[in-house]
Computed example of a mutant assay.
Amino acid sequence: MTPTQIAALIVAGAFVLLVVLLAIPLVKLGRTLDEATVAIRKAHENTDPIFTGANSTLTHVNTQLERVDGITANAKTVSGNVSALSSLFTATLGGPLVKTAAFSYGVSKALRARRKRKEEPWGKHSRRKGGRK
């Protein structure tokens, strides 16, 4: 064997060793990709029930929101009716009622003052300065 052939054998052995050393990580990487493919497939199979449940939940939420919209509209109508009723009450009965209340307050105050004068004839509200004799 010539030195060139020996060098070629060494280079060939080194190349085989390099291929074997690179083959091990490639085999491991292939197994990892297979596991990732299986995991993605399982995740894809399990998404149908999740999406179905989410879809039914959204349908239920939309139904409830429609009910809330109806309730809100009814509450708005009721508040408008109450506002109109209070305005009508104020316009029709408010003025006379306030006048009646003021009149009755004035009458009761006058009656109290009169009773007080009758009970204390020589008090500060008396017109006589010397009192009765």
Rank of each mutant, 00 (worst) to 15 (best):
P3R: 03
T4F: 10
A7D: 07
I10D: 06
G13M: 07
V16E: 09
V16F: 07
L17P: 09
L17N: 10
L17V: 03
V20Y: 11
V20N: 01
L21A: 15
L22A: 15
A23H: 04
I24L: 12
P25D: 06
P25I: 09
L26P: 00
V27A: 14
V27F: 01
L29C: 15
G30P: 08
G30Y: 04
G30A: 14
R31P: 04
T32P: 05
A36S: 11
A36Y: 10
V38H: 03
A39R: 13
R41N: 15
K42A: 14
K42V: 14
K42I: 14
K42E: 04
K42M: 13
A43R: 10
A43P: 04
A43L: 11
H44F: 06
E45N: 12
D48I: 12
D48P: 12
I50K: 05
T52D: 07
T52Q: 11
T52S: 08
T52L: 11
A54I: 01
A54V: 05
A54S: 11
A54Q: 01
N55C: 03
N55Y: 13
T57W: 00
T57N: 07
T59Q: 01
H60Q: 05
N62Q: 12
T63C: 00
Q64E: 07
L65D: 05
L65G: 06
E66F: 00
E66Q: 14
V68R: 07
D69A: 13
I71Y: 08
T72M: 11
T72V: 02
A73R: 01
A73H: 10
N74M: 12
A75Q: 01
T77F: 02
V78S: 08
S79Q: 15
S79R: 15
S79D: 15
G80H: 04
V82L: 13
A84K: 09
S86V: 13
S86K: 12
S87Y: 14
L88Q: 13
L88E: 15
T90E: 13
T90S: 11
T92C: 11
T92M: 14
T92G: 08
L93Y: 00
G94D: 13
G94A: 06
G95E: 02
G95R: 12
P96Y: 03
P96V: 09
L97P: 03
A102T: 12
A102S: 13
S104Y: 10
Y105K: 08
G106S: 04
G106E: 00
V107Y: 04
S108L: 06
S108W: 02
R112P: 02
R112W: 09
A113L: 05
A113I: 06
R114I: 02
R114G: 06
R115W: 06
R115S: 03
K116T: 00
R117M: 11
R117Y: 09
R117A: 08
K118F: 08
E119L: 01
E119C: 03
E120M: 09
P121A: 11
W122Y: 05
G123E: 07
K124H: 08
K124W: 02
K124A: 07
S126H: 02
R127Q: 13
R127E: 04
R128Y: 08
K129M: 07
G130I: 04
K133A: 01
